[in-house]
Amino acid sequence: MLEARLEQANLLKKVVDAIKDLVQDCNFDCNDSGIALQAMDNSHVALVSMMLKSESFSPFRCDRNIALGINLTSLTKVLRAAQNEDILTLKAEDAPDVVNLVFESAESDRISEYDIKLMDIDQEHLGIPETEYAATISMPSAEFQRICRDLMALSESVSIECSKEGVKFACQGDIGSGSVTLRSHTNVDKPEMNVEIDLTEPVSLTFSLKYLVGFCKASSLSGQVKLCLSNEVPLLVEYALANNSYLRFYLAPKIGD
């Protein structure tokens, strides 16, 4: 059986909120290392990969592999009933029909309990090859969100060009063009404001802004976001969570001109 207790419901609320517009039905794969999720959007352009390590829960117990097939719209409805600071416990039997969620208020003696019916989801699982990326950019997640939103006002696509000079986000649209360039930057007092660019070779790729703006819903999960790029491979956008847990998005590039 599965029993996984989160100190704050907030974490799951934010994760589900960040992915629910991209993917609808997904398997939460539970085993002794934690709870993982991998799902592609309907058009096979973007993929979300979540890992909540067992260390992110206290306690965490999962004796055998359990796949919880959950509709994220349903999960969102139930998670709305949890306060951000509630203690959240997920429970399921070994061959479950439902997943049980318990929300406990730390301040009062209120305990609420919900069951969500599970679905049988036959999900294609993709192998993601280990990639040595040509460019890795760490930057404030709020800055990335702002750039994507600002450029989406002009265009559907953004080119991300990484060179010795820095990283340039550029777009061209009907009303004109725009770009934002960032250089490496260290803020001793506020390390979450750092911009770090690790480059082995110059990269230039074009991506759909609609998807990037969607990924940015995860911004409240982490002060920093990591962008990993290599020519002609999908972009990796990673939000690191505590205890080596993470929320990653992959986005296929656009080609041609």
Binding site: M40, S43, H44, V45, A46, L47, E124, H125, L126, G127, I128, P129, S157, T206, S208, V233, P234, Y250, A252, P253, K254, I255, G256, D257
Partner: peptide, 14 residues
């Protein structure tokens, strides 16, 4: 003129 690629081109099915 720009073509959106899909992830199937890059990631293999397991």
């Amino acid at each position: 003129h720009q073509v959106q690629q899909t992830l199937d081109t890059f990631f293999c099915s397991r």
